[in-house]
């Protein structure tokens, strides 16, 4: 998730979960159930099936026993529902030598995600605030570099980071992975908050200044309370992004701290012996559960997060 956005977009992103009045279907008004209408629905339903089928086979596979899976009826409902794959995936599935299932990975992901989200949002909002109201000489250049960084493939900076963290002596630790997520969340969050604060009335800032509030006081007493809507968007972007991360987790967190995605991949792809497809699918659903829950609960906010993460040409 990366990148640049016009201030109009972000302001809308912060405007609340309701659609504005303009966002109504603008297409030609249809007649009732003409062949054309049938065609439209047919296309949409077939597309919806394409998107839903993987979810469906994930769920049914995870509820079947292995003998039934070996029959090769991918789409059949389980003849006998079993929850054993789910408990196996959570508690007993093996990643290499250890057989504790996904639960340690889940805990690691929580331990990585919560501090990373808080730290990255705190820093991103201070950056955005400084860039909107306290622009010092060279600040815009820094911001430009940061935006460029949003487009840089991670592979380009990963090795220098590894060396840097080694020198500091924190490579392969929880601190390390939290810092890495904070670094790579910074471009998008700074942009998000900068555009949000740029849309606030300047009088607000001036009033605080007249009352004698400085940089920090204005931020904590005036800006932070006003930033709730944009912070919801930021939290959604960061929680899903960090939870879903694999690359940084495997490189920077170190084996004892591997997040859930890394452990999931190890459970599925490095098994020696018989592959238990039902356990694999249960583990996959468990890993996807947190971001999916956020997605379905947050609804339109999530779409706004994407719009905010989108590049404006």
């Amino acid at each position: 998730m990366s990148t640049v956005v016009s201030s109009a977009d972000t302001r809308r992103a912060g405007a609340g979960p309701r659609e504005d009045a303009r966002a109504q279907a603008a297409g030609p008004k249809p007649a009732r159930l003409s062949p054309g209408r049938v065609g439209i629905y047919a296309f949409l339903i077939v597309s919806a099936l394409f998107f839903l089928i993987p979810l469906y086979i994930m769920v049914v596979t995870s509820l079947k026993g292995m003998p039934e899976i070996r029959l090769g009826h991918l789409f059949n409902l389980p003849s006998e529902v079993t929850f054993k794959p789910w408990s196996d995936a959570w508690l007993h599935a093996c990643t290499g030598r250890d057989c504790f299932g996904l639960s340690p990975g889940f805990m690691n992901s929580v331990k990585i995600t919560i501090p990373s989200v808080i730290l990255s949002i705190l820093i991103g909002s201070i950056n955005g605030y400084a860039l909107s109201f306290w622009r010092y000489k060279g600040a815009n250049l820094l911001f430009g570099i940061l935006l460029f960084g949003a487009f840089v493939p991670y592979q380009v900076v990963i090795y220098p980071l590894i060396i840097g963290f080694r020198i500091m002596g924190i490579y392969s630790t929880l601190t390390c992975i939290i810092i890495v997520h904070t670094i790579f969340g910074m471009p998008i969050l700074t942009l998000l908050y900068r555009n949000f604060y740029a849309g606030l009335p300047i009088e607000l800032f001036k009033a605080a200044r007249v009352d004698g509030a400085g940089f920090w006081k204005t931020f904590f007493y005036v800006m932070v309370p006003m930033s709730v809507p944009i912070t919801i968007v930021a939290v959604i972007i960061q929680v899903t992004g960090i939870w879903n991360d694999f690359l940084f987790g495997i490189i920077f967190s170190g084996r004892p701290n591997w997040p859930m995605t890394v452990q999931l991949n190890n459970i599925v792809n490095t098994t020696t012996g018989v592959r238990e497809y039902n356990v694999n699918m249960a583990a996959t659903i468990l890993t996807a559960a947190v971001p999916l829950a956020i997605y379905f609960i947050s609804g339109r906010w999530f779409v706004r997060g994407i719009a905010a993460g989108a590049v404006k040409g």
Binding site: A48, F51, N244, A288, P291, I294
Partner: peptide, 16 residues
């Protein structure tokens, strides 16, 4: 329905 795959990790997408 069209957007939910985007909420999931690419690891999940790949394994499914």
């Amino acid at each position: 329905i069209f957007l939910y795959p985007f909420a999931m990790s690419l690891i999940v997408t790949g394994l499914v």
